[in-house]
């Protein structure tokens, strides 16, 4: 940790919604190039953390630092421009447009010089769009309206759009949710393969522990707005508190023991 440069840091972040504690004493340092996964039950504070990091929510106290700068007060747009990009649990796409057009929009927002004068379907832009589609294995869907596309494809497109700006930190909110079980691994495989060409720090929320184990090199476990474990996947998943509050494996084991006895 100490030898890697710190790209993102949360210091004493607090957030409440009425009586609900969504974030309490969150202190996290993320190193450049890390693959970090966030686990925890629904309502444990994972998405709140993401929303605070991307500037959608402002913390009640504490601060967020990105690349050595305090970015707590910035909004999502400003953070996106600095290189903190995200995908969404429910893909946020332009439904009546085609997959290619969705990417053209993303390319348009990432390169705004002379955007009034440059045609949207310029050859260079189209090439960039097609290249991105190819990287995510979506060439076949280029001219299809996204409202007609299957869930997994929509997820990939959503992530591809977030990648257009070549972010330094990429946050993926439940990349495999809403995707059938046998599609999950191929999807993550595609994403990680596409990301391998970038020097990008990835933070993703995930409920499937196999995916967490395989694709992250560090895990944060959330419980009631607090980080209760922060280590490599093996250690975190073996943690008693994590087993009790997050994965539920402790309870399952107890049940098995009882059944055996």
């Amino acid at each position: 940790m100490s030898d890697a440069a710190i790209i993102l840091e949360a210091r004493d972040v607090q957030k409440r919604f009425g009586a609900v504690v969504a974030a309490q004493d969150i202190n996290i340092k993320v190193g450049l190039g890390e693959k970090l996964s966030l686990i925890g039950a629904n309502g444990a504070g994972k998405t709140t953390f993401m929303n605070i990091v991307t500037g959608y929510l402002k913390p009640d106290a504490g601060s967020i630092h990105f690349d050595g700068l305090d970015v707590t007060k910035l909004n999502p747009r400003q953070l996106t421009r600095r290189g903190v990009c995200r995908s969404f649990q429910i893909p946020q796409l332009y439904e009546p447009m085609t997959a290619l057009e969705n990417l053209l929009v993303a390319i348009g927002t990432s390169n705004q010089a002379f955007s009034l004068l440059r045609p949207a379907r310029d050859a260079a832009v189209l090439d960039q769009g097609h290249a991105l589609l190819k990287r995510f294995g979506l060439e076949g869907y280029a001219e299809r309206k996204v409202s007609e596309l299957p869930g997994g494809v929509r997820k990939l497109l959503d992530i591809a759009m977030a990648l257009v700006r070549r972010p330094k930190v990429l946050l993926l909110d439940e990349p495999t949710s809403g995707v059938s079980v046998d599609e999950k691994f191929p999807l993550m495989e595609t994403v990680m393969e596409a990301l391998s060409e970038e020097e990008v720090t990835v933070i993703f929320v995930e409920h499937d522990m196999e995916i967490v184990t395989r694709y992250s090199d560090r895990v944060l476990a959330f419980y009631q707005g607090q980080v209760i474990a922060d280590d490599d996947p093996g250690e975190v998943l073996a943690d008693k508190a994590v087993q009790k509050y997050v994965t539920g494996t402790a309870k399952a084991d107890a049940v098995e023991e009882e059944a055996g006895a």
Partner: peptide
């Protein structure tokens, strides 16, 4: 084209940096 995207999903436009 980006302006047309505003019509469909403002949130995403902001999250793409426009």
């Amino acid at each position: 084209l980006v302006a047309l995207a505003v019509r469909e999903n403002e949130l995403r436009v902001e999250y793409l940096g426009s």
